[in-house]
């Protein structure tokens, strides 16, 4: 009998699937929470949001590495594997229309939507890569990389003025949030944290509440940002951001960087 060749993926299926589950929560889920919360700080005050961005960008040259290691790679890993997992299942809500089964379907659908959204969204705001030739030569001409960290609220807001773009963001936010909230629930089963049907029911309510709050934060961030980028307020906000920039350069907190402004 010839030994069937067992692929690396097959041999380590368990660990890989657990890693998939883990990356969904840490770092991706945690990132999403922080990201949406930070974005939502814009409603409080544009300076709060700008401060947060300064803080992130204080990493300077390390930033791309941190982004890739802690965010992009985990998302790519989780996303690509997620697509493979999704292909390995066959939804059957038609014959078995149970709530959990719909959630199974939605988990996959929202994962896919979130994945597409992230691909586009990061391109749209961030541009994916920091290389000049890429940003100037490719990303910007294609309508991407619109975000300028030292004009955080104003540039992000300006990028969200189009109604279609806003709608896509809204879909992206809601899909990501559902995916995280339901993923949290399934992860608890995967890791064996909640086992009985009762516990699972209770925790599901908790996860739903968490999802609703996070969706509210995300939506306010979206509309807050959109408000900040409106043509009426744009100039004022840019003025505030300019002042913050100048003060920080003067104090030596940051080095002057025109890239991150215009």
């Amino acid at each position: 009998m010839n030994q069937p060749t067992v692929s690396f993926l097959a041999r380590h299926e368990f660990l890989i699937r657990r890693l998939h589950s883990l990356t969904g929560i840490v770092p991706i889920g945690v990132f999403l929470c922080i990201h949406l919360a930070v974005n939502a700080s814009v409603i409080e005050d544009v300076t709060a949001f700008q401060k947060a961005v300064y803080q992130i960008h204080s990493l300077g040259g390390l930033l791309p590495f941190v982004e890739w290691a802690l965010i992009f790679l985990p998302i790519l890993f989780h996303g690509i594997l997620g697509v493979l997992i999704l292909l390995g299942g066959s939804s059957n809500t038609g014959d078995y229309p149970y709530a959990e089964n719909y959630r199974y379907l939605l988990q996959r659908a929202t994962g896919l939507i979130a994945g597409l959204f992230i691909l586009w969204h990061v391109f749209h705001m961030h541009g994916w890569f920091h290389f000049r030739w890429w940003i100037d030569g490719i990303a910007a001409p294609l309508g991407g990389a619109l975000f300028r960290p030292f004009h955080a609220a104003s540039t992000a807001g300006a990028a969200l003025q189009n109604g279609y773009v806003t709608t896509l963001y809204l879909i992206g936010i809601l899909a990501s949030v559902f995916h995280l909230a339901n993923g949290l629930w399934t992860a608890g089963i995967t890791w064996g944290i909640w086992t009985s049907p009762n516990a699972q029911k209770k925790i599901w309510r908790f996860c739903a509440a968490f999802g609703i709050i996070l969706a509210a934060i995300g939506t306010s961030a979206l509309f807050g940002m959109r408000h900040a980028g409106k043509s009426e307020t744009f100039e004022t906000i840019q003025g505030i951001e300019n002042r913050m920039y100048e003060i920080r350069v003067e104090l030596g907190d940051i080095r002057s960087s025109e890239d991150k402004r215009s």
Binding site: E13, F14, R17, G89, E100, R103, Y104, T186, I189, T190
Partner: peptide
């Protein structure tokens, strides 16, 4: 690990 928690 193949289980996807559909609970059918």
């Amino acid at each position: 690990q193949v289980c996807g928690n559909a609970q059918n």
